[in-house]
Computed example of a mutant assay.
Amino acid sequence: MGKKKNKKLIVGDVEASDIVKDMAAALSVDFEENHNEYCLRIPKNIGSGYIKATVFDAGIGVLETDYLLKKELHFELKKGIVHPLKIIFNRQSPFTHQFAEDKDIHTIGRLESVMTSSIPTNNHIFKIPAEVPICTFSIEINRKLFEEKISSFLEDMNEDLISLFRDSNGINKFYYKDQYSLDIAKFIEEFTECELDGFMKSIFLEGKAYEILINYIQQYLDDTYTPEKRKILRQATVERIEEAVEIIKNEIASVENVTVLAKRVGVNPNTLQNGFKYLYKSSVNEFIKNHRIEKAKELLETSDLNISEITYKIGINSRSYFSKIFKQRYGISPNAYLKKSREDKSA
């Protein structure tokens, strides 16, 4: 079977809608336009999915992509008057970015964000792989048009960000990558899943775009701290915390202390504790205790084990302590609950 040839597209880069319009022209397909929204459906011979642009006032736009390609796609964002400032959030599979005149290739992984701008003579090149789901969300900022609004954001920025946002002629190249926060992930989901219509939808989406931008600025500043001093929970960190939860559930009889658990999933203990408080409203130890009680209840209902065996199986050494916390939780002793469960099963 012959190797599939890569497809290369050259598209405009002034505002988000230019990308949709130029891609539609290059692919010989139509795009849908509805007020300030522009949507391109990927043709079946290339893949499936869509690319959608939403344009707001003051030079702010959003580009959403959600597609699967049959063959690799390269596209170059040619200069307009000035390349917009881009803040890209990768929600799915990795792809690469390169400045046309540079040799360095940047891989943008899942749950990573990139803030980048380029000079007018140095275009962006993105290489999108085939046969993997691509899902991105990008805020596109025309800094010439955004200049009047920038004053309302200045107090949230440091000197580097102020210089970047005030570079309205795009004379400096910039590239910054890190993981993005759980809050930003939630706001992006609220944007992409909005079910409002007309004027209400437009106002909601514009407000959400600014909410994402403000939170990204706060995260950029938070990223300047050492990991143990950061206050914002990264989206990628959530996966580590969920991994810790699975370890707790699978190894409840022998689960180790917070320090060992944190080391196993690759985060520091403070991050693990903060993550559990954010996601589960409890400390790690409280979560472990609660799961032990829930697991004991399940075993009382479904197994033939006695109280001592259940106590051992959930990692509690004291039968009296187990009885105490079980009764505090369910208002009945384990013995009484076991008797009731087995009577119900035999009835």
Rank of each mutant, 00 (worst) to 15 (best):
M1D: 07
G2P: 13
K5E: 12
K5H: 06
L9E: 05
V20H: 06
D22H: 12
A24M: 03
A26P: 02
V29Q: 10
H35S: 11
E37M: 14
L40Y: 13
G49L: 11
G49Y: 13
T54Q: 13
L73V: 15
K78T: 12
G80T: 09
V82R: 03
P84I: 03
L85I: 03
E101D: 15
K103D: 15
D104T: 13
T107P: 09
I108D: 10
I119G: 01
I119T: 13
T121S: 10
T121I: 08
F126C: 07
K127C: 13
P129S: 04
A130Y: 04
V132I: 08
N142E: 03
F146P: 02
E148P: 00
S152W: 08
D156W: 04
M157F: 06
D160G: 02
S163T: 02
R166P: 00
N169C: 11
F174I: 04
Y175K: 09
K177I: 04
Y180H: 12
G198H: 12
M200T: 08
I203F: 10
D223R: 06
K229L: 15
K231V: 05
E243V: 04
N250K: 13
V255S: 00
Y278P: 00
N290H: 14
K297D: 03
L300P: 07
S308T: 08
E309V: 01
I310R: 03
I314W: 00
S323Q: 07
S333G: 02
A336Q: 05
Y337G: 01
S341N: 07
E343A: 10
K345Q: 15
S346C: 02
